Computed example of a mutant assay.
Amino acid sequence: MNFFNPTEPIIRTKQHALDYQDRQGLLRLHWQLGRKTLLSAFYTRIDQVFLFWGIICAMIFITAQFLPISWKLQAGLWSGLTLIGIAAMVVLTNFWVKVERLNWLLYFWGVLMIGGVIITDLSIFLGWGNVLIRLCHLWLGLCAVGYIGTGVGMRSRAFTLAGIIHLLGIALLNYVGGWQFLTTGIVMTASLLMFAETQWDMRPPIEYKLLTLEQRQFNQQQHQLRQLSL
């Protein structure tokens, strides 16, 4: 028996036949100028979390690379923003993880992010030089652990590969000189935006005990439609 789902492509374009739990809180964007469509996309609540974290990562690491703002001020700003990101992640994904029986993922990522913030802030305010010069290594490492854990938990090759890419990003830091923050921001943000804009693989559908019979039947129909489009 395969651990990963061999019938699912690792990454593919988004499919419109979404399960019930994915349709809750769906955000649709359609921007048009005259007869020309500028943007037409949709984002599930999971996609929205990826987008939100992508924006947060870009803000943090671009600021650290280019703007002459004190480390202590940045620590305060980014700690607050990270806590907001964690809260948004919990609110947006709460129903989905319950249906998919992946509640532990929320705690897992929450512990990683809060742990990273605590270590980062202590290194800044207490002057831990050995940690300060390795902040990029720290955050890429935390994300690698998070993605690989997610990949194993969801039986997803896409998330497992993302974890490996973040580990390779740590090795890349040795060759980018003074551009470590920008490099880290690119790796982290690009991964998040990729997950927001595509459909990634995960384990086969489970018995969704939290859903009603009609909702489970709807999911079965959607699954069949997705299989036909592969």
Rank of each mutant, 00 (worst) to 15 (best):
L173E: 10
G153F: 03
P205R: 14
V176P: 00
L173N: 08
W78C: 00
A171K: 12
E8H: 14
L73A: 11
L225H: 08
M202K: 15
P68A: 11
S70I: 05
I114M: 10
R12D: 03
K72W: 04
L51M: 12
G153W: 11
L132T: 02
S70Q: 02
N5A: 03
G34Y: 14
V90P: 00
T63A: 13
M188Y: 00
Q222T: 06
F218C: 00
L140N: 06
F181N: 10
V131W: 13
D201Y: 02
R226K: 13
R157K: 15
M113P: 01
S123P: 07
F66L: 13
G146Y: 02
S40H: 11
W31F: 10
G151K: 05
L112V: 09
W96M: 08
L210Q: 14
Y43Q: 09
R155P: 11
L142H: 11
V152L: 15
Q48E: 02
V117A: 14
I10K: 06
A196M: 08
R35F: 08
E214Q: 15
Y147V: 00
F42K: 07
I165Q: 00
F61P: 01
S156D: 14
F61T: 09
G141D: 07
R157W: 04
L193W: 15
L126A: 10
I11K: 07
H137D: 12
F95Y: 13
S191N: 03
L122D: 04
Q199D: 11
G85F: 01
F181M: 10
W179M: 12
A162Q: 04
S79L: 12
L192W: 00
L167Q: 07
A158D: 09
T150N: 11
D22A: 11
G146N: 07
G151I: 07
Q74V: 04
I84Y: 14
L132Y: 05
E100M: 13
W96S: 07
L73N: 03
E8N: 06
L161K: 11
C57G: 03
L18V: 06
L67E: 04
I84K: 07
L213H: 14
Q48K: 09
W78L: 02
R155L: 09
S156C: 14
L102K: 12
F66H: 10
F218W: 09
I69H: 07
T184V: 01
H137V: 08
L161Y: 04
L225N: 05
D121H: 06
I46D: 12
I84G: 10
L135I: 06
W78G: 01
A58F: 13
A87Y: 15
K14E: 03
F108K: 06
G178N: 15
P6H: 03
N5S: 02
I186K: 05
L29S: 09
K209Q: 08
W128M: 12
L182I: 08
F4I: 03
L161E: 04
Q24W: 03
K14I: 05
A196E: 08
Q180P: 02
L230D: 06
Y43N: 08
P205H: 11
H30F: 02
Q65L: 12
T212R: 06
Q220D: 07
I60C: 02
M202A: 12
N174M: 12
M202F: 14
Q227A: 13
V99W: 06
W71V: 04
F125T: 02
L27H: 13
L92A: 10
L105Y: 13
